[in-house]
Design a protein around this nucleic acid. Sequence first.
DNA 1: TAGTGGTCTAGACCACATT
DNA 2: ATGTGGTCTAGACCACTAA
Lengths: 238, 238
Amino acid sequence: MRKNKFKEIYQELSTQIQEGILQANTQLPSEHELADRYETSRETVRKALNLLSQNGFIQKIRGKGSIVLEANKFSFPVSGLVSFQELSESMSKESVTTVHDFGLIEPDGFLQQQLQADSKDLIWKVLRSRQIDGETIILDKDYFLKKYVHSLSKEVAEKSIYAYLEKELGLKISFAKKEIVVVDATEEDKRLLDLKGFQHIVAVKNYVYLEDASLFQYTESRHRLDKFRFVDFARRGR
Amino acid sequence: MRKNKFKEIYQELSTQIQEGILQANTQLPSEHELADRYETSRETVRKALNLLSQNGFIQKIRGKGSIVLEANKFSFPVSGLVSFQELSESMSKESVTTVHDFGLIEPDGFLQQQLQADSKDLIWKVLRSRQIDGETIILDKDYFLKKYVHSLSKEVAEKSIYAYLEKELGLKISFAKKEIVVVDATEEDKRLLDLKGFQHIVAVKNYVYLEDASLFQYTESRHRLDKFRFVDFARRGR
DNA sequence: TAGTGGTCTAGACCACATT
DNA sequence: ATGTGGTCTAGACCACTAA
């Protein structure tokens, strides 16, 4: 038996919606119909449709059916963004990463609190700036608990830390809590970023958790005000 | 047969987690065990557990079981916030709403674009400020398409527009797209808000859709920089 | 090997919308 | 009355974890 039949159905339908084969504002075949067509059970079809709905591709209406939404209008909910690899990818084009600081440190009080660590938990600190279209507008401060990330190098930091953590170390990231606030620009911000006189920056704080619910990373991504943009796509009803 | 058995199970378990009856970092009973205990099928238990997982109460681990997360640490993902009724509720306490402008208007170019309307679609405009702890720090600009909201009054605007739309008019809100950016404060912002000299404001733009996927509201919520905070809780894997 | 969660099935009944 | 999506059942097999 094939394993993720509902994901295959999801993939096929979402692709067809994005390519316009399934047109926006038209009706999707009924769940019974799709179950026949894919030679599967209705519950499996429903799993696929629920995924499509959660990701903004369709809208299910009880008693009526499911309609296809305009793919480009919602397209990819940037929400749920976990890594800054993803972030830089989403604005890729002319992105240049510079590593300003890299090493193992003992956490100060602030970091101990953020990472729920004690003073003898060593921590990898990575300080990187992101230059986009010739302007340095993002400062990323990453902190990883060494007990989960045994080794790390500056070379990795220059590329993608997340690819390394997931592919090389096999760490499984399961969820993240994000907080967005506006704070005063620090001397460090002014030194490392092209702030153009802005006195505040947008700080995106990320707390990243592994599969077993242990916190292993705290990251602060500091953005120049005028270049910051956050998009979220929310469905009603939990 | 009872209707939403999985929601009842979800309610009961989430309450027990929040009250500490189910302690953080302990194992939840297995799905088979819970199915027996609630005299239901395992798939129904799984629906409840998936809800708990999506809302940050538990963490499911294949082959091992489900563990209870620290409720207060993630508690309520403010993410997915749709209405500003909810927003004001979430910071309720000393919130005072003032209606500055209320009426039917013809949309200018900007609004036509935002609401995908044409010049003959009449629009309700509601301009309200929110005073919290003695300071006026939020300016809400709401625009509703009259073809969906046939009647509206200043009295309603002073209370909760959403309660009116949902309970009185029976409109079903299904999803919203949110965008957060920082922009220059306008003269209007400076006139109506206690800006304390801040030159920028955080603009939260909401596009709200009905069940049939038609856009019916555009809202801009303009927050004083230092009082703005947005929290998001994201799970890995779509 | 035993226990766990992940997937799938082939039905059933219900609530809602349309005709 | 018919068709739709929403919920539920009582099984089954699989993949993963741990002893």
